[in-house]
Simulated assay, not measured.
Amino acid sequence: MAEPRLIMFDMDGTLIDSGAVIARHMAATFRDHGFDVPTTEMSHSIIGLSLELAMERLAQCDAETALLMAGTYRRHYRAMLAEGGSHEPLYVGALDALNRLRADETSALGIATGKGLNGVNRILTLYELAGHFVTLQTPDHNPSKPHPGMILRACAETGIDPASTVMIGDTTFDMELGRSAGARTIGVTWGYHARLALEESGADIIIEDYTDLDDAIEKVMN
Rank of each mutant, 00 (worst) to 15 (best):
I217H: 11
A156I: 06
D215M: 15
F133W: 05
V92G: 08
G13S: 02
C155K: 07
K219Y: 05
L136E: 01
I186E: 08
G84F: 06
L124P: 00
M175F: 09
H33L: 11
D96R: 14
D212P: 01
T171P: 03
A216I: 03
H25P: 06
L117G: 09
V37C: 04
F133Y: 10
E56Y: 05
A97R: 01
M150H: 07
R75V: 14
R5W: 06
A28R: 04
T14V: 12
A2I: 14
E208Q: 15
Y210K: 00
Q137G: 00
R78T: 04
G114E: 08
P148F: 00
M1T: 04
S18H: 11
E56D: 11
T189C: 13
G187F: 00
E88P: 04
G13W: 03
T65H: 02
T211D: 15
L177A: 15
T125I: 05
S45R: 12
G159Y: 12
L95Y: 10
L101E: 03
G178S: 07
K219W: 13
Y210W: 15
D212H: 06
T40W: 11
M69L: 14
T158N: 08
E128H: 14
A103K: 14
D161G: 00
M42G: 03
L58W: 00
I160F: 08
P143N: 01
